[in-house]
Design a binder for these strands. Structure first.
Lengths: 235, 235
DNA sequence: TTATTTAACTTGTATTTACAAGTTGTGTTG
DNA sequence: CAACACAACTTGTAAATACAAGTTAAATAA
């Protein structure tokens, strides 16, 4: 049963306490020796746990002083991984589905390299336009392989993010990814969709997100109107 | 002179060897016991060094197997630039120092909020223009607090990155940060510096990087010509 | 030959011990 | 009262040791 190492248990416990606010931000954690006594571990073990917290950015250690609680909400990656919604930093984001999820073949000149299995499976395609305060700011085109996803074309995406549906209904988790960012002048279609002024550039993002399923990556192309809002990310 | 800890020396050495290609991508590092023998350290010390490499994403450890040199080193936030064709190494990035590190007061309307200590310390300012294949692509303005950094204004930044100097000479590590990205039209100065065509937008980034030193954050404003290259990040 | 076991590796976890180095408050001394 | 010294903390570095657990290839048995 108890295959979890001690340092990991202490890490999880302290992490929980920190995010739940048991320790105030800026205050000191119990000293290493105190933790040793409290949880019946030796100092290297305690230090191992604390090292993990430092890595996560949850505490900051200072020699001679102690471990300072930081409680910094840190996301993985450049933009928030949990979906485009949280990337902008705005709570209310209305979504228009321009193209409901449909099955089709992969585009001819796809920007990313695909595995054999991904190629064979065909892809699911969808387009969305997202609004902040009733103004369009976000246009995203998504390609995902047509595997593991029964009945996805029937689902409603109106009020739920793509990532949320993948996680809750298909147990697909985003592990990481890569992305390329550019500043470009929009073409006519993008300009019209995002209601851009003439001469207003847009942020162009191409991302590949890897998941816990092998050969299942999510490919997105995003156009973002950065006139009034900025893409924000903490890491 | 030599009060640099052993694990750190080994870390720097292995890091150097990895980035210089002494160990091939995907190959195995010498085993921990071999490293112990070679450098006359005990295993905990060697493991400490390897842990740092794992944290940097330079190696990947696998129990029973060994330490695998990673193909794609994981970046902290946005750091690397990828050419459109193939991966242009950072090696080809020439740097012009437009403004050598100098001590001055913080700007009046600074975009970020500063702590009291940071304000009191004054700031170190530097500007750089960076080239890929002899074309300017990257213009960055950096502000850092004038603490912990003896003699930094005398150092040469020609062939070494700011982060490298902070890490090696001052033991300052980047823990994380936050950033805002926009696509903007450049002003005259930026247009001239980056030799931009008329109508070419640029990527504008503002970032705050937090470090292992309290009250020591690095503030950067970056203008990036994304016509031929893209900002690339993996996470 | 083929399948299985075993031995010899690898990294992972953990204890114990020791001293170095930075921080802070409590004294003592001038 | 103020400046200094020191003691009692804190985290940082490092050694020696032990066993657990995963991987691999060679030796062995069918």
């Amino acid at each position: 049963m108890e295959n979890i190492p001690q340092y990991r248990k202490l890490y999880e416990l302290l992490r929980k306490h920190i995010v739940e606010g048991v320790y105030e931000e800026g205050s000191l954690l119990p000293s290493e020796n105190e933790l040793c006594a409290a949880y019946e571990m030796t100092r290297p073990t305690v230090r191992h746990a604390l090292d993990s917290l430092v890595k996560d950015g949850l505490i900051l250690k200072k020699q001679g002083k102690g471990s300072i609680v930081r409680k910094t909400p840190k996301n993985i990656g450049i933009l928030s991984i949990s979906g485009t919604a949280s990337a902008v930093g705005v709570r209310y984001l209305k979504t228009d589905i321009l193209q409901k999820p449909m099955i089709k073949t992969w585009p001819e000149n796809f920007s990313f390299e695909l595995s054999e299995l991904e190629k064979e499976s065909g892809c699911i395609y969808m387009e969305r336009l997202r609004f902040v305060e009733d103004e369009p700011v976000f246009y995203d085109i998504n390609h995902l392989p047509n595997i593991y996803l029964p009945r996805i074309t029937n689902r409603s995406f109106e009020n739920r993010s793509l990532f949320e549906i993948l996680r809750k209904n298909y147990q697909i988790e985003i592990l990481g990814g890569e992305q390329k960012l550019k500043a470009v002048m929009p073409d006519k279609q993008i300009k019209k969709l995002l209601k851009l002024k003439t001469g207003q550039p847009v942020l162009h993002i191409e991302r590949k997100l890897t998941t816990n399923r092998e050969n299942f990556n999510i490919y997105s192309t995003i156009y973002f109107n950065s006139e009034k809002h900025a893409i924000f990310g903490s890491f």
